[in-house]
Nucleic acid binder design. Structure first.
Length: 933
DNA sequence: GACATCACG
DNA sequence: GACGTACGTGATGTCC
């Protein structure tokens, strides 16, 4: 299609800067081999352009396209407002020299490349989009920048290339709560911390959308600001009217940027093969050159090897994923070739396929390996013929598999060879599967933990997330292979051809992630965290999980029956009071009965129109009415029964008679572990009835359980980090820390301390760790907010270091985007700059993270040292509950174990971190967990 | 699958 | 000075 741009034409506008920054952050700091020129961002940029061009086929392909860049740092917006984009970080040093190369790259692909001094790319995009619309054509803006959303509609849409998601008018509404024509009004009110647009203080996108929807537009709102009911909001709008108008001018895109070209100049052109291949060769992008050459039907240019390729050097340009190329290894010859290749490079990505997710019961089905990007294999071992269908004889193995013994005999020396690095994603899983059959995998790297060490708090660390984020590749989903629900099958029933593609791809992805993430560890300065706090924990946890803890089924069963009886009794009483039967377990039904039928005052509805019937609400009502108290009792029993006495029984392993939890190392952002399937970190203890559940956790015959827990570890760490002399001295003296706080705050001598005063001080101490607020403390203590605020003020007065710590921590988080523990663990705080309600949330999390995270690091270090420290004792470490370790030991050796374990725990910070406060550990023993704690 | 609720540190 | 508020988790049951 040609001629003047108009109806039937389709313009693509690519936000060049977004491409560059994404490429820069997604790739390691690659350099050109011949001269060391940084080219990581250019490499990523070229890959993205290539992928973009290749993806543009079919009827919706653009007829016109351009990549638009920013030019110069000073624009007309800086003249309007000196602080515009003032808090932007300077461009990284290794990115600067790459900027001109991205323009050259765009031209090499023969795509129009446009920029204009003094104008932002957004303004040029706006101008072109409006021109395209006026001419009757369509326009797609390839960007996810919210500043461009004001342009959407009437033939203009956006495409988030990252998520491959189109943003239309409805998409804009989802983001802003208004349609595109009102976006600037909302942005003017909400401001933007990234671009430093001031907006109206205290008003975020939600409130802004509410106001604009009510008043129609910004000018109408400002004109009628006096009518607003909320006093603060009204005053803000009146006081900051000019600032808001300025903000609107800042976010409003200029649709009349003077341009020295027309839409017709942007017509899509085929690249010139020589120019493009020449450029790629000059950049020394080997693989991309090959790919592009293939597409163009040309010979790939020869690029000299100017320096020997390092074995673990990341590839500057990536190999495309191609599941067809994965190898199905079916005999000893083929496997031997792989083992030889592994010894050649010294490392291998390994992944296991099994019959289930529970490593204690799952059986090994096959193994996949990868030694370089794009090169991977799957060694199926016990896949069933015909998908295990009974009609054909269910136990027949599929053809094309080597005997399990033979495969393992060949692989085991390699898996255990100290000179071969095994790379896994969540290696604890594979290590446990191999441990089941007597294979100890070592040494190893774990890509999940590498990601966690660098990016805790930013995103999760599952393979799908990492692959999409860092390899721009969506892995083959497992769902279609296994099905779901009742008809779900296990992996050994998956046909070999499909199994090879899926399984080998996992190894391929893992290897690529490792090549990408490993050099980044150093760049992010978290190598020590990974090497000392993450990786060494894997074998320790694997051993604990495999040990499990003995749980007595009869005890649970008896308790379950008792609970059921009590619940039935309570149900009768509840129905009696209400006058009919209903589902006591339904908060919705209960809410209506309490507040509508019975007419009790004080019902509060939540966001979906249901009354809240949480424990706080019911406890308040219980002083006046019988029903809430009964319901609370019923709920407690229901919880204990369903979650503990019943569910726990289903987790008792048939072979071991024990319960084997699984710890996630990379789940909690602060560095804490999390326990799942079942969660053994939330077994009841606070109420007498719940505590009895712990009686079912028992020691084996002839053994005893020993529990050791850190005393007040978070408060001790707070005393150290915030440097509070009074707290440090109290810990040194061994004082009751809450009583001391109370005495200091309320001027009560320690000898005359009452439980009530101490309770309040305790709540405040905890509040401080959580990033205290008057509201939260008031709610916790059930006192007026003003009184709670008074306590907090007094606390800050007596312990001024706390305030400094809080302020410094928030400032650090704002500046760096993360906070750190004493051991260097980073916890990212992406929402710290948010406006509105999110801000307080993020600030409190930032204040808490170094404290909770340091405590988590301390016990991790203790756990890592523990196996050696107790190696000569007849003892096993079973469980970790954040500040507690539970052991099982032969009778008679309790004291020796306590001495050894306490020594490790109390000195776990040594020698990396020197603490001003001593860590102390309390110990207990017993035949069951209730006694030991 | 979202939400409410409640178990733990 | 106000948006809604204590920090971090996981499992269960209801209800759409």
């Amino acid at each position: 299609m040609s001629g003047t741009f108009g109806k039937g034409h389709h313009l693509h506008l690519i936000d060049g800067s977004a491409f560059i920054f994404r490429a820069y952050h997604a790739l390691p700091p690659l350099t050109r081999k011949s001269d060391g020129l940084p080219i990581g961002a250019v490499a990523g940029f070229c890959n993205m352009l290539h992928r973009y061009v290749e993806g543009n086929t079919g009827p919706d392909a653009p007829t016109h396209a351009a990549v638009i860049f920013d030019k110069g740092s000073h624009t007309f917006r800086n003249d309007m407002y000196g602080l515009y984009k003032a808090n932007r970080e300077a461009m990284p040093e290794d990115l600067r020299p790459q900027m001109p190369l991205t323009r050259t790259a765009t031209e090499a692909f023969n795509i129009a490349c446009k920029e204009k001094e003094g104008f932002e790319a957004d303004d040029i995009i706006a101008t072109l989009a409006v021109q395209a619309r006026a001419a009757g054509g369509r326009c797609t803006i390839i960007s996810s920048d919210k500043d461009l959303m004001q342009l959407v509609g009437d033939g203009v849409e956006m495409l988030d290339a990252m998520k491959n998601k189109t943003i239309d008018r409805d998409g804009v509404f989802e983001k802003f709560g208004v349609f595109p024509e009102s976006v600037v009004d909302v942005q003017a009110l909400a401001g933007d911390s990234v671009d430093n647009v001031p907006g109206a203080p205290g008003i975020g996108i939600k409130t802004a959308a509410l106001l604009i929807n009510e008043y129609g537009n910004l000018e109408a709102l400002l004109a009628r600001a006096e009518e607003i009911k909320q006093p603060k909001r009204r005053q803000t709008l009146i006081d900051h009217a000019e600032q808001i108008r300025l903000s609107r001018r800042l976010v409003l895109l200029d649709e009349n940027t003077p341009l020295d070209f027309t839409l017709d100049d942007l017509e899509v052109r085929d690249p010139d093969a020589d120019t493009l291949l020449g450029f790629l060769a000059e950049m020394e992008f080997r693989t991309l050159s090959k790919r592009v050459a293939e597409v163009l039907g040309r010979e790939a240019p020869v690029i000299a090897e100017t320096s020997p390729a390092l074995p673990d050097a990341p590839q500057a340009d990536d190999v495309p994923f191609d599941a067809e190329k994965y190898e199905h290894v079916a005999d000893a010859d083929a496997l031997q070739k792989w083992i030889d290749a592994i010894y050649e490079v010294g490392y291998v990505a390994v992944d296991t396929e099994t019959t289930g997710l529970n490593e204690m019961t799952a059986e090994l089905v096959g193994i996949s390996l990868s030694t370089e990007p794009g090169k991977a294999c799957y060694i199926p071992l016990i896949h069933k013929a015909h998908g295990g269908d009974d009609l054909f004889g269910s136990d027949d193995l599929a053809e094309g598999q080597m005997p399990v013994e033979q495969a393992l005999q060949m692989l085991t020396p390699m898996l255990e060879d100290q000179s071969i690095l095994k790379i896994g994603q969540n290696m604890k899983y594979d290590a446990k599967i191999f441990a089941q059959i007597g294979i100890t995998v070592a040494p190893f790297d774990d890509t999940m933990l590498m990601s966690y060490a660098q990016h805790a708090g930013l995103h999760n660390h599952g393979m799908d997330t990492l692959s999409e984020r860092y390899l721009s590749h969506t892995p083959i989903p497992i769902k279609p292979l296994l099905g779901s629900g009742k008809s779900a099958i296990t992996f050994d029933k998956v046909p070999l051809e499909e199994a090879v593609k899926y399984a080998a791809e996992d190894a391929d992805i893992t290897l690529r992630l490792w090549q990408f993430l490993k050099p980044q560890l150093h760049r992010a300065e978290v190598t020590k965290v990974y090497e000392t706090l993450e990786r060494p924990l894997v074998p320790v946890l694997a051993a604990m999980e495999r040990s499990g803890i003995k749980v007595d089924r009869d005890t649970l069963s008896r308790m379950s029956n008792a609970f059921a009886q009590k619940m039935a009794g309570l149900e009768d009483e509840i129905y009696e009071i209400v006058g009919r039967k209903f589902n006591v377990g339904s908060p919705a039904q209960l809410g209506e009965i309490l507040f509508d039928e019975m007419g009790i005052e004080g019902g509060k509805k939540g966001k979906n129109g249901k009354y809240s019937t949480g424990v706080d609400v019911l406890e308040d009502l219980a002083t006046e009415h019988d029903l809430p108290a009964r319901v609370l009792d019923w709920r407690q029993l229901s919880k204990l029964k369903s979650t503990y006495t019943d569910a726990l029984q289903t987790h008792i392993n048939a072979d071991t008679g024990r319960v084997h939890t699984s710890y996630s190392i990379a789940g909690a952002s602060t560095g804490r572990l999390a326990s799942t399937d079942p969660n053994l970190q939330n077994i009841p203890i606070r109420t007498e009835e719940g505590r009895r559940i712990r009686e079912a956790f028992v020691a084996e015959e002839g053994k005893t359980l020993v529990a050791l827990d850190y005393s007040q570890i978070e408060l001790r760490i707070l005393a150290h980090i915030a440097d509070i002399p009074a707290l440090k001295e109290a810990f040194a003296r061994g004082d009751d820390i809450h009583a001391m706080t109370a005495s200091e705050m309320f001027d009560v001598p320690m000898e005359e301390m009452t439980p009530e005063v101490r309770r309040r001080a305790k709540a405040i101490n905890f509040g401080v760790i959580y990033g205290i607020s008057g509201f939260g403390l008031a709610r916790n203590l059930r006192i007026p907010r003003s009184e709670a605020q008074g306590f907090i003020d007094r606390y800050f007065e007596r312990f001024p270091g706390i305030r400094t710590y809080m302020d410094d921590t928030k400032a650090f988080a704002k500046e760096h985007g993360y906070v750190q523990t004493l051991f260097g663990r980073k916890i990212h705080t992406p929402n710290i700059g948010a406006k509105g309600p999110h801000a307080g949330f993020a600030a409190r999390a930032a204040i808490n993270a170094p404290i909770q995270g340091t405590a988590a690091d301390v016990i991790r270090r203790a756990m890592i040292r523990m196996p050696d420290a107790i190696a000569d004792l007849p003892a096993t470490m079973l469980l970790q509950v954040h500040d507690e370790l539970l052991f099982e030991v032969e009778k008679g050796a309790e004291d020796t174990l306590i001495a050894a374990a306490r020594e490790v725990m109390e000195n776990a910070n040594d020698p990396v971190v020197k603490l001003d406060v001593k860590l102390t550990v309390d110990a207990g023993t017993g035949a069951n967990w209730a006694e030991a704690h």
